[in-house]
């Protein structure tokens, strides 16, 4: 499967785009602001934005950044959006409400509870009529969803926008995912004939399910807890500007038995 990475989006504590994330990953800067600032993606109309959950705002923000960097119109991309947990704040609200004395739930919360809410807001606000997918794969969500996005790009021969976000885990769910901070990342993936500048290839090879460690120490707490942040193991190895490349092959586990291997052609 051949492809190129043409755009990156990123948002989390201490970074608001690829440039600030890259500086943190390479250890060139300390985070200026350790507080998490919720994004305000301009593509969602203000009235809608006020009601949109953080999971939606995170995904839409990084999706917009990746398209802009790649100079690709959102309407030309198919979308694969991932989240390991979904919006656990809404899950907790729904579950606590329906088992209470007054089980009536908010209709807005209910339609925002679907796993494809982030990609739906993005497709509605950006006018995308192509395929939009929403996926999960537990602790392997970031890598397995990226595999799905690269595969779709390669087989269908069209740009695919990959985005992953997970918010901080509510206390009652910490036994599954111990994430204390939200983050989101996006990659704009373009088809490649395997020859041009920045051409990369992806394949599945035998693996043991273990994630590589992160070199830079500043983002390790995020990397240890938030399942979407596992994509940092890939992002920290990227070099160059759009299109990006890998100096050497890198692996990410997609389950307990297989790795996704990415390398320059």
């Amino acid at each position: 499967m051949n492809f190129t990475f043409a755009g990156i989006g990123a948002w989390g504590r201490g970074f608001q785009d690829w440039q600030s994330l890259h500086a943190l990953l390479s250890g060139r800067s300390q985070p200026e602001n350790l507080e998490f600032l919720p994004p305000k993606p301009a593509s969602i109309p203000a009235r809608e934005r006020r009601r949109a959950p953080l999971s939606v705002k995170l995904a839409v923000e990084v999706a917009g950044q990746a398209c802009e960097m790649a100079d690709v119109a959102p309407s030309e991309t198919a979308c694969v959006f991932a989240s390991a947990m979904g919006d656990m704040d809404i899950t907790e609200y729904m579950c606590r409400t329906v088992v209470s004395e007054l089980p009536a739930v908010s209709p807005t919360k209910f339609h925002n509870s679907v796993h494809n809410a982030p990609v739906a807001y993005w497709s509605i606000s950006s006018g995308i009529s192509l395929s939009s997918n929403a996926v999960a794969a537990g602790h392997y969500s970031a890598s397995a969803s990226l595999m799905e996005a690269i595969n779709q790009c390669s087989v269908e021969g069209r740009p695919v926008l990959w985005a992953a976000q997970d918010i901080a885990t509510p206390a009652c769910f910490r036994f599954m995912f111990d994430s204390d901070q939200p983050c989101a990342f996006a990659l704009l993936i373009l088809p490649s004939d395997g020859k041009g500048e920045g051409s990369l290839s992806a394949s599945l090879v035998a693996g043991d399910g273990n994630w590589p460690g992160l070199s830079g120490s500043l983002l390790r707490p995020l990397y240890e807890g938030n399942p979407s942040s596992r994509i940092l193991s890939c992002l920290e190895k990227l070099t160059g500007d759009s299109p990006f490349t890998f100096p050497e092959a890198m692996h990410m586990p997609v389950n307990e038995h297989l790795d996704l291997r990415l390398e320059a052609k």
């Binding site: 979904g86 679907v114 796993h115 494809n116 990609v119 939009s132 997918n133 929403a134 996926v135 999960a136 794969a137 397995a144 969803s145 595999m147 799905e148 599945l204 997609v254 389950n255 307990e256 038995h257 297989l258």
Partner: peptide
């Protein structure tokens, strides 16, 4: 043991 994914749209 092959690739595995849950789709939720």
């Amino acid at each position: 043991k092959g690739p595995s994914l849950t789709l939720s749209t």
